[in-house]
Design a protein around this nucleic acid. Structure first.
Length: 441
RNA sequence: GCGGCCAUGGUGAAAUGGUUAUCACAUCGGGUUGUGGUCCCGGCGUUACGGGUUCGAUCCCCGUUGGCCGCCCCA
């Protein structure tokens, strides 16, 4: 007892420094989880409804996996990948996307011997080391679907339909933009053509586009500068350079979409940043009505066909595939913007309050009995005063509060309080569950 | 990776080169014996971190870190 603390010493004690989360990584707290859970639930429902199998792949992969698939020269691999050497000296990467892993799994597990096409869905965190912004984090969640082993445009059409339906199921308004970028070969010849065209108008292009000319000419197409847009309007369009088969495929896709009465926008300027895409590419963007300006991180989901990827990875030749992925944080941001309310958990039926040590001990057991009877119940056993407990009960929205105090323990009763009217009744403790069930009907 | 804006309690704000940094909401506790949604009272911050200028800095300067916006890129 005799210690006499609180002297000069105490004031000199330095507070321990807090540790912040790592840049671009954020906590998703309970009050935001309803949005994420709502998304996850709807994503799982639709995946299962269209008979996709669930797959989880490792977060860590061999660096070569992404260099080979996403493309060594892409920004994602070149600048944005978390790469490090593990203790065994292997170069590993935090996955920046999941398609490569899914295809690897398809090959590794001999899924080519399964009935084709193989349909898989996944959901999990991805990692890209970029400058964080709203809608762009270094760790972010993606949900995606892959259909491997299906060549027909009907597959593309159905996948686009699923993508749109998912957002509609979530109560959101979205638009879909589509384009075809043909094969790597046709893309190459088109690039040459496009560069030739752009050079002729070089003086009208912005500084960035001057650079893009040599670095990533396809990006000229979606520059937002007015001058560039004017020039690009006249530019050759990739659809006119498609090989016959790709053109045919694209036409079929459009027919299927028309058949589905699924609205879409042809966007000849839509291109993709990952090397593996072929033919169909599409993007899901919010539909906020009357040409409202969309921010730069507005794309909610994107996908396309990647016919060459399986072979590139060492799988069987000519295994066509399509897929798409959704950025869940972006979807959540857009849900909030469109004022979509995720379903809230229903309020509990019962709050259980106790007064005194003896009552608390028994309360613990009685509480389990109530739950076992199928009623939803909450408590705050850590609180002592009845006042504090009733405050908590009130906030919980519980319909009834069951009160067990010293007196009730002696009588073998419990008090049941109707939280709306404030009316209370004393009930024999073996009749309480029955009573509550009747009242809650 | 480049450019710009910003940084005050859990949240949203206010204030000043100088005694105990203001308010609201949230939260916790209390308003005597076991009772909520109203009311009253109280607790909760070394003004992001580090350095500098100054007799003195939350306020001025520099750096760091983080957030936001645009670019790049992408989901």
């Amino acid at each position: 007892m005799a210690t006499k603390p609180k002297a000069e010493e105490d004031t000199s004690v330095r507070k321990v420094k807090t540790i912040e989360s790592v840049r671009g990584m954020k906590d998703i707290l309970p009050d935001e989880q309803p949005y994420f859970e709502y998304f996850r639930r709807k994503a799982q429902e639709i995946s299962e409804a269209y008979s996709f199998g669930h797959i989880d792949t490792p977060i860590l992969e061999d660096v070569k996996l992404f260099e080979r698939t996403v493309g060594k020269m892409t920004d994602i691999v070149e600048k944005e990948m978390y790469v490090f050497e593990d203790k065994g000296g292997q170069l590993v990467a935090l996955r920046p996307e999941a398609t490569a892993s899914v295809v690897r799994a398809y090959i590794n597990h001999g899924m080519l011997n399964l009935p084709q096409p193989v349909k898989l869905w996944y959901l999990g965190p991805m990692y890209r080391y970029g400058r964080p912004q709203s809608g762009r984090l270094r760790q972010f969640y993606q949900y995606g679907l892959e259909v491997i082993g299906g060549a027909d445009a009907v597959t593309d059409a159905q996948l686009i339909l699923i993508a749109v339906k998912l957002f509609e199921d979530l109560g959101m308004k979205v638009k879909v933009e589509i384009n075809s970028i043909g094969t790597p070969e046709t893309r190459q010849t088109y690039k040459v053509e496009l560069v030739a065209f752009a050079r002729k108008h070089r003086k009208n292009l912005c500084e960035d586009c001057q650079r893009r000319l040599s670095k990533s000419p396809l990006r000229l197409l979606d520059c937002k500068e007015e001058g560039c847009r004017a020039v690009m309007k006249e530019a050759p369009q990739i659809v006119d350079w498609l090989d016959e088969a790709s053109k045919e495929h694209f036409m079929q896709l459009i027919e299927y979409l028309d058949e589905l009465s699924l609205p879409y926008e042809l966007n000849p300027h839509l291109v993709r940043g990952l090397d593996y895409y072929t033919r169909t590419v599409f993007e899901i963007v919010p539909d906020r009505g009357d040409g409202a300006e969309l921010g730069s991180q507005s794309s909610l989901g994107a996908g396309g066909r990647y016919d060459g990827l399986v072979e590139l990875m060492g799988g069987r030749e000519e295994t066509p595939a399509v897929g798409f992925a959704v950025g869940i944080e972006r979807a959540v941001l857009e849900m909030k913007r469109q004022e979509v309310e995720p379903p809230a958990l229903p309020a509990p039926q019962i709050f259980f309050a106790q007064i005194g040590a003896e009552a608390r001990r028994i309360a613990l057991r009685r509480f389990e009995e109530i739950r076992a009877a199928g009623l939803t119940a909450v408590e705050s056993f850590g609180k002592a005063s009845l006042k504090a407990q009733l405050e908590t009960a009130n906030r919980s929205g519980a319909r009834f509060t069951v009160i067990l105090g010293q007196k009730e323990v002696m009588d073998g009763t419990m008090i049941v309080r109707d939280m709306e009217s404030g009316a209370q009744e004393s009930i024999a403790d073996d009749k309480v569950v029955e009573y509550l069930k009747k009242e809650l009907k």
